[in-house]
Design a protein around this nucleic acid. Structure first.
Length: 873
RNA sequence: GGGCGCAUAGCUCAGCGGUAGAGCACUGGUCUUACAAACCAGGGGUCGUAGGUUCGAACCCUACUGCGCCCA
């Protein structure tokens, strides 16, 4: 593709997205418009993509987020910034390992058959063949990302970054290894961090068990009683004080266990006595630690009971009823509540019920890191948009638990710690020599995927090396992400960003200056989209049917900061219609000879010309204001109304009269049409990149709108007088159209009319031709006889309907208007009769109400006169 | 159980102290020379309930009811 592929200037009457989108995108990439130059003098503007999962495909949530990011970045690029949207993916440890294991299982092979090295090799093969589908889909959406900089969290460079920060944290004592209760997925066979667990209210059972004459405990997981090593009561609970320090025999096991006093026990819950299973419950673990209790693990990594006895070998869910049955046989079941609804944790990847389990894992000590992350927002170095989301942020970072970062997987960054034959533990940095010799081995576990994602804002720019890209683009300007994952990786990026750049000046250490939060995409009934509910939509389907611009514009138009976005097919269709409207308006302009050139000075222009330019420049300013505040919905809405309701419906129609008249006026009209479209297409480009590119290049003959200058609002074109004139003209036209509609006249039917002006009305006298064209009123001819009249203010339009006048329709209309005016008068009068109002309301407000009263009085007089003049039936 | 938020036209949402708005849907009429993926005109809401503050409340305060989300 060497020549500029420009659509035929004679545009077809319907916009066909399928025909233009793919070639346009390919051209953009080929010409490098989305690439960024770290050596440029332009101010930087960098946003990193929230890295999609390598196993994933584009869903509406991505489409939404990408639309917003792309709009921000495209606008800044047009504004002359060195704009970089950094693309890439994360390696999604658990998800990817699961996918590849499933593939292998089809051939009857397990990862253990292959061995670690060969398995990881397989994963890379899988990625090369079928990973990263989403990248192609991003092209369909039109994402203006710098493809030459694409990164992957498992790349060499990013892996170096991971190892570097691990070593830094380890040396600073912020990474440690400890035996704790973790969330264990018995299917994925790995530990999960707290945020990888989803809680839901599930049906379960609550069983009360008599441990002794005086001790009754309740549990939802009866099988864990096999691992009990104590019973606890609140030390202040008078009922049980005497039991503290005594022992009882744990049923089914015959083990003697103590009764301990612990503040953590809530005396008001159940019997006020709790069983303590330190190896299988986080709270019990803490109790156990406080009282030096042993922790008995009674289950293996598959969730199968290992405790000796009749239950050994049973799955945890088989063991549960079996244990209850055995206790019942001994007469120890006091009560059973079934179903008992309670919160149950599930693996966010595979939905398996998570098993709390005592296990030796690696942890990040988040205290100081989270403190710094909170402070960065508190002292204003990082702004959260909208600010209403701040409490959510502080609520999280100010009360964060240590982060479990080890995963019992093979796919991921292997923990860079080596163990020696004599109990040595060595953390190895990226440039350090790995310990060799008899008995040395590396830790088997890999790191949580978020550990590498947390580095994304700077590892993608070359960190830990001091690269020019890092120098230019760190900190990033904005991070755009959903409020639902504010804690997931935003908190982690803040912690690691601030830590890794701790030596930098405080305002430069933050990973980004602004966090812009968006909501979640919902269906047209406001319901959360989910595969299981069956209301999930594939954005590709809508892009195929209506075009990418239609999808993007719909999403942008729904994007209120921090709020969820409902979307339905009807709305995408409406956006498609809007794109087609732009297409046809441009088509009309081109057919009419519109061109982009120097705009004549205002005094040479007609009121409609001056009006549309005034409106354009007002809207341009509004759009800028909204963009600066991440108000995508407002910006899009303003443009939608301007383009459709003002430019297309009124200016273009008025222009038709101007184009048909005086040559000089027609020529100036062509320039105004060209100028408005030129600006409108540029300012719409960030949210509807394809249709605007196709139209703008055709209109201007220039290479691309992608790098065209962002339109600056020209205040000097503001023209309140022209706006008032056109407003009056529009009112007159609408009144006549309403009359015509009431009278059942066909829109195209031409009717003779005479204009009678009671006062000087420039809106009409200067624009009579336009007025008659828009209302289909012909000049009066011989034999004109006025059979009906429309009165609007000082203007009377006498119409010759040649007989058939629908007097009743007219009476209904006038009566309704009269009733409205009387209501308005009553309201105004009531206020003006109120002395308190006169005394306390601001002057301007009182004046406004006075004017309203005067207008209403005049209108009432006019309407009453007209009603009286109607022929009686 | 703790925290945050939301209740405005049939649906989805703006508005957040001075005459109730948009899109879609709806009704009637039109192929009017850019567009029927369009145009013209129209109907539709005592702004969840009850109190309070104010000259004035959809908007501020309190309670209640009903939903949603996050955390435990």
């Amino acid at each position: 593709m060497t020549e500029t592929t420009r659509p035929d200037p004679a545009l077809p009457p319907v916009f066909d997205p399928a025909q233009v989108e793919v070639p346009l995108y390919e051209r953009w990439v080929e010409r490098g418009y989305f690439e960024a130059d770290e050596k440029s003098d332009k101010p930087p503007y960098c946003i990193v993509i929230p890295p999609p999962n390598v196993t994933g495909s584009l869903h509406l949530g991505h489409a939404f987020e990408h639309t917003l990011i792309d709009a921000l970045v495209r606008r800044r690029r047009m504004q002359g910034y060195e704009a970089l949207w950094m693309p890439g993916m994360d390696h999604a440890g658990i998800a990817t390992q699961n996918v590849v294991e499933r593939e292998l299982a089809k051939q009857g092979v397990s990862r253990h058959d292959l061995g670690r090295e060969a398995f990881v090799e397989k994963v890379w093969e899988w990625k090369a063949e079928s990973g990263g589908k989403i990248l192609a889909q991003m092209r369909r959406l039109g994402d203006g990302v710098a493809w030459s900089r694409e990164r992957f969290t498992m790349d060499h460079g990013l892996s170096r970054a991971v190892q570097t920060i691990f070593k830094m944290l380890y040396d600073d004592g912020l990474i440690y290894r400890a035996e704790r209760i973790i969330n264990w997925c018995v299917r994925c066979h790995t530990a999960l961090s707290d945020i990888e667990v989803e809680h839901s209210d599930d049906d379960g059972e609550l069983v009360s068990i008599r441990y002794s004459d005086e001790v009754v405990v309740a549990t939802t997981r009866a099988e864990t009683m096999l691992g009990d090593t104590a019973v606890a009561v609140n030390p202040g609970d008078e009922r049980y004080k005497h039991l503290i320090g005594t022992e009882l025999v744990l049923p089914l096991t015959g083990r003697r266990i103590p009764i301990v006093g612990d503040e953590h026990v809530d005396p008001s819950f159940g019997t006020g006595m709790v069983k303590v299973t330190p190896a299988h419950d986080p709270n019990d673990f803490e109790i156990g630690r406080r009282h030096g209790l042993p922790a008995l693990t009674i289950m293996d990594e598959q969730g199968v009971i290992t405790a000796h006895g009749p239950f050994q070998g049973l799955d945890r869910f088989e063991a549960r009823p079996a244990v209850v049955a055995a206790l019942r046989a001994e007469g120890r079941i006091v009560s059973e509540k079934r179903p008992y609804v309670h919160a149950v944790g599930h693996c966010s990847r595979c939905k398996t019920v998570v098993e709390p389990r005592l296990s030796l894992q690696w942890w990040v000590k988040v205290g100081p890191l989270a403190q710094a992350a909170g402070d960065a927002v508190r002292d204003g170095r990082v702004a959260i948009h909208p600010t209403s989301m701040e409490p959510r942020w502080f609520g999280w970072v100010d009360d964060m638990h240590d982060w479990c970062i080890s995963r019992q997987l093979w796919w991921g960054h292997r923990i860079p710690v080596w163990y020696g034959p004599d109990g040595e533990v060595v953390c190895v940095g990226p440039d350090d020599a790995v310990p060799t010799g008899e008995g040395w081995h590396q830790d088997e576990d890999v790191l949580d995927t978020w550990f590498s994602s947390a580095l994304w804002p700077f590892s993608t720019l070359g960190w830990p090396d001091e690269t020019p890209a890092l120098e230019k683009f760190y900190p990033n300007q904005v991070l755009v992400t959903g409020y639902d994952i504010l804690f997931f990786w935003v908190a982690r990026m803040m912690m690691f960003g601030l830590y890794a750049h701790g030596a930098a000046e405080p305002s430069k250490a933050v990973p980004f200056h602004t966090i812009a939060l968006h909501g979640m995409v919902r269906d047209e009934r406001g319901k959360k989209m989910s595969k299981s509910f069956g209301n999930a939509v594939d954005p590709l389907d809508w892009m195929d049917a209506y075009g990418s611009d239609a999808l993007r514009f719909t999403l942008a138009r729904g994007a209120n900061p921090g709020a969820d976005v409902p979307i339905g097919e009807d709305w995408v269709q409406a956006s498609r219609n809007f794109c087609n409207k732009l297409w046809n308006a441009t088509r009309f302009a081109l057919i009419s000879g519109a061109r982009v050139g120097e705009l004549p000075p205002s005094p040479e222009l007609t009121a409609p010309d001056r009006w549309i330019l005034s409106r354009l420049n007002t809207v341009l300013a509004e759009v800028d204001e909204h963009y600066e505040d991440f108000q995508f919905a407002k910006a899009s809405e303003a443009l939608f109304h301007f383009a459709r309701d003002e430019f297309c419906d009124w200016y273009v129609e008025l222009a038709k009269t101007q184009l048909a008249g005086d040559d000089a006026v027609a020529e100036r009209t062509r320039l105004v049409l060209g100028n408005v479209l030129d600006n409108l297409l540029r300012v719409l480009h960030p949210v509807a990149p394809f249709v605007t590119e196709a139209l703008w290049t055709t209109l201007t003959g220039q290479e691309t709108v992608v790098t065209a200058a962002w339109p600056a609002a020209d205040r000097s074109r503001r023209d309140p007088a022209a706006e008032a004139t056109v407003a009056e003209l529009r009112r007159l036209v609408t009144e006549v159209r309403r009359f015509r509609s009431d009278q059942g006249l066909k829109p195209g039917q031409r009717v003779p009319a005479r204009l009678v002006l009671a006062a000087d009305t420039p809106a009409l006298t200067d624009h009579e031709a336009a007025f008659r064209s828009l209302t289909r009123l012909e000049p009066e001819a011989d034999g004109f006889s006025a059979t009906a009249r429309v009165v609007v203010g000082s203007v009377t339009v006498e119409v010759d309907l040649s007989g058939a006048v629908d007097v009743e329709a007219e009476r209904r209309r006038l009566t309704k208007d009269l009733s409205n005016e009387r209501k308005a008068l009553e309201q105004a009068a009531r206020k003006l009769d109120n002395e308190q109002f006169l005394a306390k309301a601001p002057e301007a407000e009182v004046d406004k109400v006075r004017t309203r009263r005067t207008t209403a009085e005049a209108e009432i007089a006019r309407l009453e006169a007209q009603l009286a003049a109607l022929p009686q039936t």
